[in-house]
Design a protein around this nucleic acid. Structure first.
Lengths: 235, 235
DNA sequence: GGAAAAAAGTGAAAAATATCAATTTTTAAA
DNA sequence: TTTAAAAATTGATATTTTTCACTTTTTTCC
């Protein structure tokens, strides 16, 4: 089941095309010359909120979450990044420290690009410049939508919406023809939706009883995307 | 009472320095050549969500709110813009339609800059380019903080925080030495905080009884900024 | 300055969400 | 495999927030 034409995914997810995809050779060369590739194990932290932004991270493969932890230790996931995405570059551009933390959700390969190389590449590359402007302005749109969502919509609606969005990210890794399995802990799902874990569990049970999703252990399979979209209030 | 050193306003408010301030003469000329200045009366709409982005709007004087209206007609204010700020340029950069609506909160003077002029100015001006990258990436930081705020913090905390932020915006227009009067309808305050109007009213009464704020009709004066900051959980 | 309209404020009740204290199931490690 | 640890689930209860119906106050505009 595809989402084309029945759900406005672009309103809710950052553009998945990488900022770096098909960058002119010399520009990419410059950017990648001194990169450092490393494997991160599930759960490992990539960078921590409030620390100095030493560089940006290119997610070659795997999945990572960007999140904030509040004073009470509650975690809020801002967004889940997939292979091909660039992490931690906002701080470099704005001159702030990292505004959020990032951690790997499954084993991932990540290339570190030093701050100076990134800044130099921007100076050199018009294409990269335009890409960044486009990416950032689109992110603004997505964040704006999410802000209104969190501020005003009930948890059930938010859960439905995030299931739709997150499912797209797990699609990438799935066998074609096989159902998409969302493999995310209830805790992560809860902090993505902005609620308590118990609440997510209960709402999922409800969706299961209605035949909208199926669960296999922690894995979630969406059986009826259209009804999920209706719950998300997106038609 | 100033906020310097006791509250991290930059985490919660878009940088107030204008994107256009001190732009090199030729760049500014290009941008402003075909501008159209108009006075908007209180409550007038500047642009509407989902419509084609014909240009960007420079707020010469006054105040405007950017907001979204959801399916149930509930309004969520994303942010309040002050004199000197540029509105509606994200859509032009991202290629989307306007992601939100904008309306004037008090009589304002606004210069309309056509889409093509804005795009041309970006092509020509490196300074404008850098400014936009910096502004957008900082906006990301602010939105991210707000997202976590809305998703996880109780209404009282959010109200305290928004009072602090919004007070800074009303400072600009206030007589030096005089207390800052926040002049915002309870409805707007509620949709800024993401709650029902009645809730705002009740919480304000509470703050009044504790001697933290004073109200004069609709106007709100902060008497004890430090305690407000403590409630906002920012120390 | 006074009447009408709009906005602000109050109280009670309903609904949504969070919290706490378990129990059961799943996963991972020896 | 077995078993210990971690994660998921459930139920009961407390807390927060919303909604509705209404009154009072403030603002607007003749």
């Amino acid at each position: 089941m595809s989402i084309q034409g029945i759900f406005p995914i672009e309103k809710w997810d950052f553009k998945s095309e990488s900022i770096l995809a098909d960058l002119p050779k010399p520009d990419l060369q410059l950017l990648m010359a001194r990169r450092l590739e490393q494997i991160y194990k599930k759960g490992e932290i990539i960078f921590r909120e409030e620390t100095y932004a030493t560089g940006t991270f290119y997610l070659v493969s795997g999945k990572a979450k960007k999140y904030k932890v509040d004073k009470d230790g509650r975690e809020q996931i801002i967004y889940v990044a997939n292979a091909g995405e660039l992490l931690g570059f906002h701080a470099i551009l704005s001159g702030d420290n990292y505004p959020d933390s990032a951690a790997v959700m499954e084993e991932s390969l990540i290339a570190f690009i030093p701050r100076e190389d990134f800044l130099e590449a921007i100076r050199q590359s018009d294409v990269l410049n335009r890409r960044l402007l486009k990416t950032l302005s689109h992110e603004f749109v997505v964040l704006t939508n999410n802000l209104a969502l969190f501020a005003q919509r009930p948890v059930r609606e938010r859960l439905a919406l995030q299931l739709i969005v997150i499912r797209e990210k797990y699609k990438a890794g799935a066998e074609p023809g096989m159902p998409v399995e969302i493999n995310m802990s209830r805790d992560d799902l809860a902090s993505l939706v902005g609620t308590a874990r118990e609440n997510v569990v209960r709402l999922l049970s409800g969706l299961r009883e209605e035949g909208i999703v199926e669960t296999k252990g922690r894995k979630i399979i969406v059986l009826d995307l259209k009804r999920l979209i209706r719950i998300a209030n997106q038609n």
